[in-house]
């Protein structure tokens, strides 16, 4: 178990577990990162499942979700209510997850979330093919 800022991945279908598997191919074995799918869960059940994990974070943490407006985001926000040091971040991709893993021991929840948002934006780039 890491001593850094804790986090959980909450995403649609198998995306969270697949993203974690992909991250482990690059980063190596990952400890202390929960994954949760919204598959088959009512809003109430998903919110409670996130809330149980958030309740264990004594110094806050990050709920990392796939897209804004989805049930993972909505339930993450609802579960974080009353926990001012729990931050919900949407739009998580592989570069963002890797940056989290590399920096979770160096930042608190809010500073780390802000860093991840910058990383996510920077990670989406365009590269034109060259003419023949």
């Amino acid at each position: 178990m890491t001593s850094g800022t804790p986090a959980m991945l909450v995403m649609h279908s198998d995306l969270a577990s697949a993203l974690l598997r992909a991250a482990e191919k690059v980063y190596g074995p990952v400890e202390g990162l929960d994954v949760l799918s919204n598959e088959g869960l009512s809003r109430e059940d998903l919110e409670q499942a996130i809330g149980r994990r958030v309740a264990d974070w004594t110094n806050g943490g990050l709920v990392l979700t796939d897209f804004w407006g989805g049930s993972c985001h909505i339930c993450g926000v609802a579960a974080a209510r009353g926990h001012g040091d729990v931050v919900v971040v949407t739009g998580i991709n592989l570069p963002v997850l890797l940056d989290y893993l590399h920096n979770r021991d160096a930042y608190g929840p809010l500073a780390l979330a802000e860093r991840l948002i910058r990383k996510g934006r920077d990670s989406i780039r365009l590269h034109h093919g060259q003419p023949a």
Partner: peptide, 11 residues
């Protein structure tokens, strides 16, 4: 829909 507004609705 017991999730009310969520991804399937919006997206």
């Amino acid at each position: 829909d017991d999730r009310l507004i969520h991804g399937q609705v919006v997206v």
